[in-house]
Amino acid sequence: MEKQYITIGLHDGHLEMQVLVGTRNNKKEAESIARSPRYHIAYLDNEKLKFKNKNLVIRKEQTDQYQFRICLDESKTHVTDDDYKDISWDEAIQSLIDDRDGNISFPFPLESYYYSILEYNPVADFQKVQI
């Protein structure tokens, strides 16, 4: 069986972060991991993202493990990939600060709102496009 890439989508408002949380060769195992409550909340700061269970930490320099994007038009009830703009870690932090007029404390909580199980690594593919 093909390797299964497990990603979790975290968000706060119009900011989205997709994180590669693991791989498995068995789709049933991958689904079990993706649905696990251990990935429902993560905490973001200037240098890392730490999931609530504290077993998974993604560091800013691990660019092959995450991607950020921001929705350009929050007024839409249905958005597509074209409604998003890819942004860097620093731009994501600045967006959170700007959205709250500087009234924010870190680490900042992000909640999961989707998971995906794919036969390719969407984060690695994203990074290739950015280079």
Rank of each mutant, 00 (worst) to 15 (best):
T63L: 12
D64S: 12
T63P: 04
K128A: 10
L44P: 00
R35H: 11
G102A: 09
N26C: 12
W89Q: 00
K3N: 10
F51H: 00
D99G: 15
S88M: 07
R35I: 05
R100W: 07
K3G: 03
Q94N: 13
N46R: 14
Q65S: 09
A30Y: 03
E119W: 11
N25K: 15
K27T: 14
D82W: 05
R24Y: 04
R100Y: 11
D83H: 07
Y113D: 06
D82L: 09
Y120I: 05
D45K: 01
E16K: 09
N26Q: 11
I93G: 03
Q127R: 13
Y120Q: 08
C71I: 08
L15N: 03
L44N: 00
N46W: 13
D101P: 09
H11K: 14
K28S: 14
G13A: 05
K128G: 02
P122M: 09
S88T: 13
K85D: 10
Q94H: 10
P122F: 07
S112N: 03
L56D: 06
L15S: 05
L96Y: 02
R59C: 08
H14A: 08
E16H: 14
D86F: 12
Q62P: 04
V123K: 01
Q127C: 06
C71K: 13
R24I: 04
Y114R: 08
Y120L: 05
N46C: 12
D99N: 15
N55A: 14
Q65H: 10
E16A: 06
V21P: 05
R69W: 08
P109M: 06
I131P: 11
R24A: 11
E111N: 11
V129W: 13
Y39F: 07
D86Y: 14
L72E: 10
K54G: 04
M1C: 14
I70G: 02
I58A: 02
L56I: 04
L44G: 00
L49D: 02
K85Q: 12
L20M: 04
M17S: 01
I87D: 07
V19I: 02
F68H: 01
R100I: 10
V57Q: 08
P37D: 06
K54V: 07
K27E: 15
D86S: 14
V79D: 15
K27Y: 15
E61M: 11
D64K: 11
E16S: 08
K50W: 02
L49P: 03
E111C: 05
Q130C: 12
E61C: 08
L72M: 14
V129G: 10
S88Q: 04
L110E: 09
F68A: 03
P109V: 01
K3R: 15
M17T: 01
I117T: 09
L10N: 01
I97M: 03
A34C: 02
E29V: 15
S36V: 06
G22N: 00
N103L: 14
D86W: 12
I70Q: 06
M17A: 13
K76T: 05
E47A: 04
Y39E: 02
S32I: 09
L15Y: 00
